[in-house]
Simulated assay, not measured.
Amino acid sequence: MNRYSRSKTPNTWESAFGDEASERNEQLLKNVAVSLKFDEGDRYDDYERLLAYVYADGQSVQEILLSEGLARVAYVFPPNDRYVDAYKEAEAIARKNNLGVWEYKNYVTKRGFDETKVEEEKTEVNKHPSECLIKGNINRENKKIYHIPTGKYYDQTKPEKWFCSEQQALDAGFKKSGNK
Rank of each mutant, 00 (worst) to 15 (best):
G136D: 03
E63T: 04
E63D: 13
N137H: 11
W162Q: 10
N179T: 12
A94H: 02
Y4I: 15
V32H: 13
L99Y: 04
G178L: 14
Y107I: 01
N97W: 00
N126V: 00
E40S: 12
K30C: 01
G100S: 12
E160T: 09
E26Y: 14
K8N: 06
A16I: 08
G69D: 05
Y55C: 01
Y87Q: 14
G151K: 03
G41L: 08
L50S: 06
E141P: 00
G136W: 03
L28E: 02
E48M: 13
S67T: 02
E121G: 00
V61R: 07
V118N: 08
K143R: 15
K88F: 01
T116K: 13
G112F: 12
V73I: 05
K158Q: 12
T9C: 08
E141R: 15
T109Y: 13
V73M: 10
F174M: 13
P129Y: 13
A71V: 04
G178M: 12
Q62T: 01
I134P: 02
K158F: 09
K110S: 15
F174D: 08
E166Q: 14
K175P: 01
R111E: 15
E119K: 15
Q167I: 12
N106G: 02
Y75R: 13
D57G: 14
K176N: 08
K30M: 10
E20H: 10
V34A: 07
L50K: 09
K152V: 13
L65C: 05
E23T: 06
T157K: 08
K37E: 14
S130I: 12
E91N: 02
A74P: 03
S5D: 09
L29A: 11
